[in-house]
């Protein structure tokens, strides 16, 4: 136990280039997973808002999003590792699906809270449904949507690290391997890099969120 703690107190950064490269892979997993989820959450979020679609569209879409959300991203990652093999792609897919379930719900809550009057005014010009959404709905919800998306990006950087441990690539995988091989000083260095990176990502995201609100 003392040896374990002592190992962590002497972080070994000699291989830092490798750690940083893997950290970048993890960030990329988070970015892609979040980006794809945002792209899909726009239509799914609108299709699960009661003020936008009839119940026979709303109910199936909502149930599908419930399913996406109910299954933990780690479970999705395990499924994808089996289906598409070890590597970052499985991590991206896992984050993508779980985050879509979460963001679609948050996006639809924003859509359900809009002021309907500007949308009605646009309808009277003869605009199509899609045009009513683009000009009347999106401008009203955009600040919230961006804020939610950035928030999910923050937490997906943390999740992507964990997904590495189960074989989805990135820094998590390196961390897990060094712990399993009792290389505590290396593991300690990796952890420090993770903490610093997550902190920086949080700060950037907070800054961006403050800009859009």
């Amino acid at each position: 136990m003392a040896e374990y703690a002592a190992g962590f107190l002497r972080p070994d950064f000699s291989d830092w280039r490798h750690y940083l490269a893997e950290m970048l892979v993890t960030i990329q997993i988070a970015l892609w997973g979040t980006f794809l989820a945002v792209a899909l959450s726009v239509p799914f979020g609108i299709l699960s808002s009661h003020n936008m679609v009839p119940w026979w569209v709303l109910q199936p879409v909502r149930r599908l999003m419930d399913l996406f959300r109910a299954i933990h991203e780690v479970v999705f990652a395990v499924l994808f590792v089996v289906a598409v093999g070890l590597g970052p792609f499985a991590g991206v897919m896992a984050l993508f699906i779980h985050t879509t379930g979460i963001l679609a719900k948050l996006f639809s809550e924003a859509v359900e809270a809009i002021d309907p009057r500007p949308v009605e005014a646009i309808r009277t010009t003869g605009a199509s449904r899609v045009q009513q959404i683009i000009y009347g709905v999106i401008p009203q919800v955009l600040p919230l949507w961006i804020s939610y998306s950035l928030y999910r990006l923050e937490s997906n950087v943390r999740s992507a690290t964990v997904l590495g441990i189960i074989g989805a690539g990135g820094i998590g995988q390196v961390l897990f391997e060094s712990i399993r091989a009792f290389y505590y000083p290396e593991a300690s260095a990796i952890l420090i890099i993770v903490v610093i990176t997550v902190t920086i990502m949080d700060l950037i995201s907070q800054l961006l969120r403050r800009l859009v609100i």
């Binding site: 500007p118 646009i122 045009q131 000009y135 009203q140």
Partner: peptide, 23 residues
């Protein structure tokens, strides 16, 4: 409308251009 019903976050010009959508 009584409450104007413009899209507050869009520019005035864009709000006016919306009048073209049906045409």
């Amino acid at each position: 409308f009584q409450q104007f019903n413009l899209v507050g976050r869009l520019s005035v010009l864009t709000n006016v251009l919306i009048g073209n959508l049906g045409r």
